[in-house]
Nucleic acid binder design. Structure first.
Lengths: 195, 195
DNA sequence: TGATTTGATTGACTTAAGTTAAGAAAGGGG
DNA sequence: CCCCTTTCTTAACTTAAGTCAATCAAATCA
């Protein structure tokens, strides 16, 4: 457990140095949980305000549209899945499942509220993190819009090469906005071209 | 000016009720600025930490890729453009320009810091707003990924019908992830189909 | 191990997007 | 009002993605 706490502290300190008292507070209230490969953390229709910070493993968001899974996001080590429905109070439109056995830090607004009251700097931290996530998300979206499927794939190859190993190809396909068949053909096309 | 302040207060109060002292503080430090149609608020390569809240008008983000403008976002009344480069300190990769004469509230981290120190609740507000923006952005991205160009266009027709009037079609095209020619053909296709 | 499920590939065909180029329509400024 | 710029449309052609179906490979499990 010591190790996973240090992992978390290292991550946080990239954004804000932590005092001892604050570390203790986190140690006392942080909830770490293990999930198994294939486990569902959230189903469509459920109400959940939980957020997840990935210590180890990989989780995935997907929609089911006309019976088809459409994967929209993967979260791996040091990445945060923040809930979409916490503000509007609507039921979830998507699923969250575990791609691998994973260790996650789980949070929710009630826990955060308590922490913010005790340590206002945590709210500062969360604001900064949230702004950073927003910036990252906007950049990814812009990148997606301005690229062809092939450019997206090549880009993924460079920016997150691990994903190609960790995740089945049919999930990557919808993540890239195409069908599994198209991705398969694209790969053979690229292989032929680079030979 | 009274009117534009009230507009801002109304927006904020959707998220958090404001006390009189807080309203006064905003009144004293808020910077409103008018921009003309076509004016550039940010150029590629510039360093800027300014954020913009649109009181009236429309602004647009676009990249220039191989000489082509690729529009990635429009911001209209009550929407916020938060800077992407404030954290990483990198030069901007995109442009921001005014689609129409616009009235904007301008902010930057220095101003925010002063406000946060005087009124910690502002930081709370900014955290909440930022989380809401993140959720909205993630939902838009997921929607984009899981839709065909045609579905995106039809969806835009329903969710932001005003944009089609305010913005030239070639800018909408890249916003939808397609070329102007494709959008034009798509429109005739749809018109023929619905007749 | 053998059987079953799951994931990846391939092929044939359809559809729509990208590209290039030309011309028409609309809008703004003098 | 006309000219010029900007925006939109149309056409012909190329390319690649979607779809459906069959097959192949690999992982899982009884």
């Amino acid at each position: 457990m010591k190790e996973t706490e240090n992992y978390l502290f290292d991550f946080i300190s990239r954004y804000m140095p932590l005092g001892e008292a604050e570390k203790i507070a986190i140690r006392e209230s942080a909830v770490f949980r293990n999930y198994q490969k294939g486990e569902l953390l959230l189903k469509q229709g459920q109400h959940s305000k939980d957020g997840y910070f990935v210590i180890k493993g990989c989780i995935r968001c997907y929609y089911v549209i006309e019976g088809e899974e459409k994967t929209t996001a993967f979260y791996t080590e040091s990445e945060t899945l923040s809930p979409l429905c916490s503000i509007n109070q609507l039921p979830s439109e998507y699923y969250v499942s575990c791609v691998e056995d994973s260790l996650l830090l789980v949070s929710n607004p009630q826990m955060e509220k308590i922490m913010f009251e005790k340590f206002p700097r945590f709210e500062s931290l969360c604001r900064i993190l949230s702004e950073a996530l927003l910036a990252k998300n906007q950049t990814s979206f812009a990148n997606f819009k301005t690229s062809t499927p092939e450019q997206r794939y090549v880009n993924l190859l460079h920016t997150r090469p691990d994903l190609l190993q960790r995740v089945p190809q049919y999930q990557l396909a919808s993540y890239l906005g195409i069908t599994p068949e198209s991705l398969s053909r694209m790969r053979t096309r690229l292989a032929r071209r680079n030979k």
